[in-house]
Amino acid sequence: MNNAQTHIRHQGASHGHGQEHGIDGQAEILDLDAEVMSEHTASITAWLPLRTAPRHIVDLGCGTGAGTFALLDRFPDAHITAVDASAEHLQRLRAKACTRGVQERVLTVHADLDEAAWPDLGVPDLVWASASMHHMTRPDRALRTVRDALAPGGLFAVVELAGHPRFLPESAPERRPGLEERVHTAADRLQADVMPHRGADWGPMLTAAGFTVVDRRILTTNIDGSRSEATGRYALGVLQRIRGAVAERLSAEDLAALDELLDTSGPHSILRRDDLAVRAERTVWAARRT
């Protein structure tokens, strides 16, 4: 999973923006998230309150590998078991591992973590779950399974998102100020029913599952979009996917303004803006099996 900023899974029909100029799917957005947020992810891996450097790490809901490769960089002697329900994501991750020359340190496992019985993941020293726990219908059961799998004294790192990232200033776009916030509000209301644990406080649930929470941090980011052209493509991909899900919940005026932003060939395209930023908040819990 590691769906990072892409909780909206509904692609929606093409709405006339020329798909060849858009973002093809969730996997590409995950890759862009990994690129844009790389320093932020590295800071989380550097913060982890580990007693010793882990030798075996499990990345639960690994997506296309944002956390996997950050952890491999942080712990050069470790090997990682990367678990995800998407065969496409795992294929991309394996291709990246080969390109980076670390394929011998990565084992991919295709599994649905909502199943009661998980595949054998070994005895990890560290389990990492970034933006994946809230996708599970029985997170309480999953937490207990992680605890049982961890080595004594092992660490479980849970990274949760406060919501989708914001890219535009509040005054944008000029004809519909505050558009992005209204779009995200519609998405949040839609997702509240299907993912009730998104944005949850995982501390009490970790304690109930038998962990000791040893630290918790709230990390905010505000990345200047001019640092990388990937920011525009990232914003485009996230908003395209949200648009496919919430179009019917927006006013006609807001939908028209959003479509102008997503029209990559038009004068108001989000790719043409020079005021983009990536503003996001993530909470990290570090919990130890005792």
Results as ranks from 00 to 15, higher is better:
residue 287 A to V: 11
residue 98 C to Q: 14
residue 206 L to E: 03
residue 277 A to Y: 14
residue 70 A to T: 05
residue 256 A to E: 14
residue 193 D to F: 11
residue 41 T to N: 14
residue 133 M to K: 01
residue 290 T to H: 10
residue 91 Q to D: 13
residue 253 E to Q: 12
residue 40 H to D: 15
residue 197 H to Y: 14
residue 12 G to C: 03
residue 73 D to Q: 12
residue 274 D to P: 01
residue 189 R to T: 02
residue 41 T to F: 15
residue 47 W to G: 06
residue 196 P to F: 06
residue 213 V to F: 01
residue 107 L to F: 09
residue 33 D to T: 13
residue 20 E to M: 14
residue 108 T to C: 12
residue 109 V to R: 10
residue 132 S to R: 00
residue 258 L to E: 07
residue 164 H to S: 04
residue 246 V to T: 07
residue 74 R to I: 08
residue 226 S to W: 10
residue 248 E to Y: 08
residue 55 R to H: 06
residue 22 G to M: 10
residue 263 D to A: 12
residue 93 L to N: 06
residue 15 H to Q: 14
residue 284 V to S: 07
residue 231 T to C: 10
residue 39 E to H: 14
residue 222 N to T: 15
residue 113 L to K: 00
residue 165 P to K: 00
residue 280 A to C: 09
residue 209 A to H: 05
residue 261 L to F: 09
residue 206 L to A: 00
residue 177 P to H: 08
residue 286 A to T: 04
residue 121 L to N: 03
residue 139 P to I: 04
residue 22 G to K: 08
residue 194 V to C: 12
residue 147 R to A: 02
residue 20 E to F: 13
residue 20 E to K: 15
residue 247 A to N: 10
residue 23 I to K: 12
residue 142 A to Q: 02
residue 122 G to N: 05
residue 17 H to P: 15
residue 103 Q to I: 08
residue 69 F to T: 01
residue 14 S to E: 15
residue 147 R to M: 01
residue 271 L to P: 00
residue 85 A to I: 10
residue 13 A to G: 15
residue 64 T to F: 09
residue 136 M to N: 11
residue 26 Q to D: 15
residue 157 A to Q: 04
residue 63 G to M: 01
residue 141 R to H: 11
residue 41 T to R: 15
residue 174 E to W: 09
residue 267 P to Y: 01
residue 94 R to Y: 06
residue 76 P to M: 06
residue 78 A to I: 04
residue 107 L to N: 13
residue 281 E to H: 10
residue 204 P to T: 02
residue 240 Q to T: 10
residue 68 T to L: 06
residue 35 E to Y: 05
residue 40 H to L: 12
residue 51 R to Y: 15
residue 260 E to C: 15
residue 275 D to M: 01
residue 99 T to R: 15
residue 207 T to Y: 07
residue 174 E to P: 10
residue 243 R to N: 06
residue 31 D to I: 04
residue 230 A to I: 05
residue 232 G to T: 01
residue 218 I to E: 09
residue 38 S to V: 11
residue 130 S to F: 06
residue 282 R to F: 14
residue 247 A to T: 13
residue 200 A to P: 06
residue 88 E to I: 08
residue 171 S to M: 03
residue 55 R to V: 11
residue 7 H to T: 09
residue 68 T to H: 02
residue 236 L to E: 04
residue 38 S to G: 13
residue 168 L to S: 02
residue 38 S to F: 04
residue 120 D to N: 03
residue 134 H to Q: 07
residue 88 E to F: 10
residue 128 W to Y: 12
residue 286 A to N: 09
residue 248 E to T: 12
residue 196 P to D: 05
residue 130 S to V: 03
residue 273 R to C: 00
residue 54 P to Y: 04
residue 130 S to Q: 13
residue 164 H to Q: 05
residue 100 R to A: 12
residue 153 G to I: 02
residue 128 W to K: 02
residue 98 C to E: 13
residue 123 V to D: 00
residue 17 H to C: 13
residue 249 R to L: 12
residue 176 R to Y: 11
residue 180 E to L: 05
residue 87 A to W: 09
residue 119 P to V: 01
residue 262 L to S: 05
residue 108 T to N: 07
residue 13 A to S: 13
residue 250 L to P: 09
residue 32 L to R: 03
residue 277 A to E: 10
